[in-house]
Amino acid sequence: MDYSSWINALIGGLMIGAAGALFLLGNGRIMGASGIIGGLIDGSGRSNLVERFMFVGGLIGAPALLGLYKTLPSTNATTNLTLVVVAGLLVGIGTRLGSGCTSGHGVCGMSRLSLRSILSTLVYIGAGVVTIVIARQIGVLS
């Protein structure tokens, strides 16, 4: 078993939670990645555009800066671009229809004991588990 990846997971997780705590206590906002970027895309976030852009800028920019000094771990993403497009569309539509993703529902909502967020998290993890089984069965994923 690779315990170092568990320790990194815990440290990274604590950083993610600290970021969410900073956003909540500092700005009174919920750190939901799909909600923040979604509001920029569909115009619903017009009242706090700069706040959203700064968040996205940090989210993309900080790892980019780190990447100048250190080789970052590969995303190991599939090169099957049809699959990538289908997945991207599903994530885009699903997170907007379901009002959140892993950060908004999974981290911020669950820690608030929001029923909607707990249900959402159970459903998207469940749907993910079933999708992996089916995708491996029909050969979409190896």
Partner: peptide
């Protein structure tokens, strides 16, 4: 909408392994 949205999101998350936050964080690499 909450449940159908979560199902669609979970399917996409599984197929590519990306959710919105990590997709943005890894955009540069």
């Amino acid at each position: 909408p909450l449940i159908i949205g979560a199902i669609l999101f979970g399917m996409g998350w599984a197929l590519a392994g990306f959710c919105p936050g990590p997709a943005m964080a890894s955009l540069s690499f």
